[in-house]
Design a protein around this nucleic acid. Structure first.
Lengths: 118, 118
DNA sequence: CATTCATATGTTTATATATTCATATGATAG
DNA sequence: CTATCATATGAATATATAAACATATGAATG
């Protein structure tokens, strides 16, 4: 195995790490953004609130698939919904969604800038 | 199936959506943050650059597992590495990592604030 | 240049999850 | 109160992927 010692460093880092639970919750949140379908739904809702069948039609997917994904988004408080007769409209829950995605976007852009310079 | 019409809305939204490729790349980026092990590695590197076996020891995982995850992080330009003799040190590639995670963190906090008010 | 240490990589397996299909719920209109 | 439209949900399946295991690479040291 490995021989060299780094206990001092490990002790220092260990003290600064958040709890496993928090790290897990954070990862779970980002996991929600880590799916193309959900990303498409979020970008769609940037433009306007929409009913389930409109999103399904927009993405060319089954209503059931969209419903399942909307549930994931709602459980994570990224979207919310309101009923109007038989129709249920979904909309973005808050502006964190935009800023989280914007940060990811920035990273993608810079990543590509770097690629050109290689 | 569904009857009500929303072609006008769909046309509008369709025009504003980024390309499938971009949406997919964005989702793929967030997917990298969507794993507890990788999240732990990133938080560890917030504190200090570290060699592979130090991270493995810190997380109580096999060296191979850490190596595989570091590769994912490096492919996505979230970390970078430098060699020093036999040892390879990994470190955060840039500050986007911090700000992306910080945004996710903020959302978690607010999510919990809301829960208390329910 | 052979050995050892640190890391990387290929393969396999187990688990998570996105989608589909079938069906249930829930609201409205007649 | 029955039929219909919009959505939700449960179960099954197919795919993605994290971790483990075995092994390969690559640098340093004697």
């Amino acid at each position: 195995m490995h021989e060299h010692n780094h206990e001092a460093l490990l002790d220092m880092v260990r003290n600064e790490l958040p709890t496993d639970e928090l790290l897990c919750d954070l990862a779970d949140l980002f996991k929600v953004f880590g799916d193309t379908t959900r990303m498409k739904i979020l970008f769609s809702l940037f433009e306007s609130e929409m009913c389930v069948c409109a999103i399904a039609e927009l993405l060319g997917m089954a209503q059931s698939a969209i419903s399942h994904q909307l549930k994931v988004l709602k459980n994570n408080k990224l979207v919310d919904s309101r009923r109007e007769g038989k129709t249920i409209f979904y909309f973005l829950a808050d502006d964190h969604v935009r800023s989280i995605i914007a940060q990811g976007f920035d990273h993608l852009i810079e990543e590509r800038k770097d690629d050109k310079n290689d």
